[in-house]
Simulated assay, not measured.
Amino acid sequence: MTSRLRELIQQLGEAIHESVIESEQIAGVVQDIRKHGFDVLLMLEATIGLNEATEGDSEETDETEEGTAFSKNDRDWLKRLRISVEGEDQNEEIGG
């Protein structure tokens, strides 16, 4: 892994952290919990996985009815999380 890639992964982690900190929705829920007499300690763990992309990966996508495109890597990742994508064979076995 190159130092530039490490730097980008660090930036991604920082961006996720900032998104959580700046979320008005999260702040509102935390405030509601505190109103009920509880302190909140929020710890999130992000796992960042990298797969080297090949030219064919970016072009091989399926579109859902809503027009959202999923690559083969997207579909494989969703399957590992046991999330099915509409339009796929519901009887297909989920690999894990």
Results as ranks from 00 to 15, higher is better:
E60M: 03
W77E: 10
T64R: 04
I83H: 15
E24V: 09
G96M: 05
F38H: 15
T47Y: 04
E88A: 12
Q10V: 02
S84N: 13
D32G: 12
G95V: 07
G49K: 14
G87S: 04
I48D: 08
I26R: 06
H17D: 10
N91D: 15
V30E: 11
R75D: 06
T61Y: 05
G87A: 03
V30W: 00
E52P: 08
Q10L: 05
L50V: 13
I83C: 14
N73Q: 14
N73I: 13
L12I: 09
Q90R: 14
D62W: 14
T64D: 15
E66V: 09
E92Y: 04
M1N: 09
D32M: 14
A53D: 08
L44G: 09
A69R: 15
E7M: 03
G67D: 05
G95Y: 03
N73E: 13
E55S: 13
L81I: 00
F70H: 14
W77M: 11
V29I: 15
L50F: 14
I9E: 02
S58M: 06
H36I: 06
S3H: 09
T47G: 13
I21L: 09
D32P: 05
G87R: 07
E63C: 03
G56C: 01
N51E: 10
R82G: 06
S23K: 15
E93W: 07
E55C: 02
D76V: 15
M43N: 14
G13K: 04
D57R: 01
V85W: 06
T64Q: 11
L42F: 05
L42R: 09
A27H: 13
T47W: 00
I33Y: 11
R75S: 09
D39V: 01
L12F: 08
L42V: 05
L8M: 06
N91S: 15
S19V: 00
L50K: 08
E24N: 14
Q90G: 13
R6F: 09
E66Y: 06
E52G: 05
G28M: 10
A46Y: 15
A53C: 06
I26W: 08
G37R: 10
T64I: 12
R6E: 03
E18K: 03
